[in-house]
Simulated scan of single mutants.
Amino acid sequence: MKQLVALILCLVAATASADPVGRVLDSHVLPGFARLAKETASLAAAAEVGCDERDPDLRAALNGALRAWAGVSHLRFGPTEAENRAFALAFWPDSRGMTPKALAGLIAAEDPVVQDAQAFAQVSVAARGLYALEFLLYDEDPAGSDAYRCALIRAIARDSAGLAQAMAADWHDRYAALMRAPGPDSPYRSQDEAMQELFKALGTGLQITADLRLGRPMGTFDKPRPKRAEAWRAGLSLSLVIAALNSQKQLALMLAEGDAGLQERLGATFDRALASTAALDDPALAGVATPDGRVRVEALQQRVNEIRELVAQELGPELGVSAGFNALDGD
């Protein structure tokens, strides 16, 4: 009996290891985009119920959508990038301050484009998506009429829900199957290429967390830039770092399933970074403007870079893949 049980366990393990890409799709990618679609749909529904910028339910719905985006923001390929969906849903970083300008233009003109979903999908990405909505809901000096701002908020929320639904449907109905079955009709010639895409996504996510989510607000010691933090108006900057790291941890551990020791080292390194976030108590990362606060954020960034180093030096060789180019190269 013991021999039979051992044989069954070996067969189960062999079956699981034979389709690592499918396992990541089913447990990480597809659920992540389903959650994003659900949270943005809730956001659109909340905007229809009440479009007052100070409405706590509307703000809570936006916060949920932003966290859901942080959980998939490393998956910057395939349906996420098609038709500029990611840029339209999540135009950040906005290094030139285009979002306030684009929104101000719509509000000043009371542009009727907000009444037509198809037309609104053609406006500048700077005036669309979750970060445009964050600006409107947390702007301390709102401009324009209440009626137009309400219409604009609803238009952005509906558009965001549509973008997220398109991503989720494209992943579920088409792209996941292409990754599961590499070959002439797939963007991937082999399972190794599909695995490399997932490994590259992990590296991209960690780079975004270290260099953008943490690096941008730090600026330089003499000139910190706290208002360059992601979603700082909503006080979500640290929360989005945590959401991203938890999702990236899940992906890393799944990719390392063939090596228990490496899984343990990755888990411990991620846990050290997450422990650093718990010690910050700085929701908007505003503390980077002080020497003590900057040191704490630098320490967190170093923890994230330790994960990046471990992923590059051990996980990549374990999988037999390299990072290659990612979505941030050339930016």
Rank of each mutant, 00 (worst) to 15 (best):
266 L>E: 04
114 V>D: 00
2 K>H: 03
101 K>G: 09
188 Y>R: 00
293 G>Y: 01
230 E>F: 09
315 L>R: 07
222 D>G: 04
206 L>G: 07
127 A>L: 12
3 Q>I: 12
272 R>Y: 00
118 Q>A: 15
153 I>N: 08
79 P>Q: 05
175 Y>A: 12
19 D>T: 10
41 A>L: 04
113 V>R: 15
241 V>M: 10
12 V>L: 13
3 Q>W: 00
129 G>Y: 01
269 T>G: 05
162 G>N: 09
39 E>P: 03
186 S>K: 00
220 T>N: 03
151 A>C: 02
301 Q>N: 05
221 F>V: 15
156 I>G: 11
211 D>K: 04
167 M>V: 15
301 Q>S: 09
198 L>D: 01
141 D>E: 15
325 F>H: 13
27 S>Q: 12
212 L>A: 07
240 L>D: 00
177 A>Q: 13
320 G>F: 05
299 A>E: 05
42 S>W: 01
134 E>Y: 01
137 L>P: 13
184 P>V: 07
51 C>D: 12
35 R>N: 12
282 D>F: 05
129 G>D: 00
70 A>D: 06
331 D>W: 15
110 E>V: 02
241 V>T: 06
97 G>I: 10
60 A>W: 05
258 G>Y: 04
144 G>T: 06
130 L>P: 11
218 M>T: 09
160 S>D: 03
184 P>M: 06
165 Q>S: 14
303 R>L: 05
